[in-house]
């Protein structure tokens, strides 16, 4: 299964979350991605895009670029987010302690934790003044 890389450039605003998830869903549907895997990818897409929309350019505004392609055997989606906002490595933070009670839980950090758990690979790089976050997901049921 091969879906050529497509690119969406949009204002990094939470208002555009639906545009971004729909764009990614279209490519996954073209690759006959199973529904449960699509939901896992959507979750990661929401977490990463909302992070960019909330923090990359605050208090100003800017664009986010999203690229999606599917290739390989088994079919693997590669999704890349790019922004030219403040340099930030979301993978640098420790995972939240999921065993703590609510009163002691740090309410942040769950999004990136879920992204790591739901995707097969995640990578961050700061390149040419851009934050580049890449994640991969195998689009077939494992086991």
């Amino acid at each position: 299964m091969e879906i050529p890389v497509k690119e969406l450039v949009t204002a990094a605003s939470v208002d555009n979350l639906e545009t971004v998830t729909e764009f990614v869903d279209e490519q996954l549907e073209a690759a006959d991605c199973p529904m449960n895997i699509q939901l896992q990818v959507e979750l990661a897409v929401e977490e990463i895009f909302v992070n960019i929309a909330s923090y990359a350019y605050a208090p100003g505004t800017g664009n986010a670029t999203v690229r999606v392609g599917v290739s390989g055997e088994p079919a693997t989606a590669e999704i890349t987010f790019m922004d030219s906002g403040v340099q930030y490595d979301p993978l640098a933070k420790d995972d939240p302690d999921v065993n703590l009670p609510a009163s002691e839980r740090d309410i942040g950090g769950l999004g990136i934790f879920l992204t790591k758990k739901n995707m097969d690979e995640v990578a961050y790089e700061y390149r040419d003044g851009m934050n580049v976050f890449t994640m991969k997901k195998i689009l077939t049921e494992q086991r």
Binding site: L39, E47, L114
Partner: peptide, 21 residues
Amino acid sequence: VDYISSAGLRVMVWLSRHTGI
């Protein structure tokens, strides 16, 4: 509900805090 993200989970954490433990 067939989908929840960390934003939804944060409401659950908030609710547990809000209501004591």
